[in-house]
Design a binder for these strands. Structure first.
Lengths: 143, 143
DNA sequence: ACATAATGATACTTATATTGTATCATTTAT
DNA sequence: ATAAATGATACAATATAAGTATCATTATGT
């Protein structure tokens, strides 16, 4: 059970990179080469981030993406929601199908308490938190 | 992102059932019919629980499984570890492969803090917690 | 002794989710 | 016009989860 899947991981990398470029437009070509990851995959990720307003796309030659929000305004929990949907730690493997305890499942009731703490913790983490924490910058990372 | 996958869900159902049978031996045939789930799948689950000492198997005709531990001694976090391995919320999607921030990944460092709370919360939940919480028993569930 | 009914071990198959690729249309700078 | 970017979307490959099948072994009951 991981919090960060590949889409979210790439999104974080790309967004952190864009934070450093501030108002500049960056292309998926550049970042894909820079991070040595799949460009079409990164494109899909940024398209999604564009659709939800985290970044803004600029079409045409010399186009690309730039941030719509500041690092303080982008939270990890938002990225999780964008790429994985709402957090439902307590979600049942057969919810809505045949689980007979659907209303008052004792397991779910317990896990929902955990979920609240978990979400509260996640809400504290923004891109800024992450960037501030970096010892080795994404630039140094390349070497 | 869910905590309870199907294996763990079935394990909880079966173990809760066995708690009520106390020292009695119960068969996978019986429980599979009772819960209307796959018998071979449930067998695999109970075999695993046997291997790690949560239940004890009794071979031969009239054989089956019985609990080795009390409801107070079986924790949700143990079941998660048994069926999903160690909890690593902070696990990187490419850990050990190519992640250049492996040592000091700022994302991981943040998530590890969340992980600690999460695990601490999970450690509080035992089978007894769950059983005590039940409004509708697993028996009533069948109707 | 023998049939029955259970688990032990393990390989195989199916289903689903994740990850990645390909293509073509559209847009814009030069 | 051409080049270089994104938009939209369908397709493919891979990984994980879920489920099935089989045969050996063990113990019970007659």
């Amino acid at each position: 059970m991981k919090i960060i899947n590949r889409e979210i991981g790439y999104a974080i990398k790309a967004l952190c990179f864009m934070v450093k470029e501030k108002e500049q437009i960056v292309t998926t070509s550049y970042m894909a080469t820079y991070f040595n990851i799949s460009r079409p995959f990164l494109r899909k990720i940024l398209q999604k981030l564009n659709q939800v307003g985290v970044v803004e796309s600029c079409k045409g030659k010399r186009g690309g993406f730039k941030l719509s929000l500041s690092a303080e305004q982008i939270f990890l929990i938002d990225l999780i929601k964008i790429f994985q949907g709402p957090i439902q730690l307590s979600g049942c493997y057969d919810r809505g199908q045949k689980c007979p305890l659907i209303e008052d499942c004792p397991v779910r009731l317990e896990i929902e308490k955990i979920e609240q703490n978990f979400i509260a913790d996640l809400k504290k983490i923004s891109l800024k938190t992450i960037i501030d924490r970096e010892k080795y910058s994404l630039v140094q990372e390349k070497q």
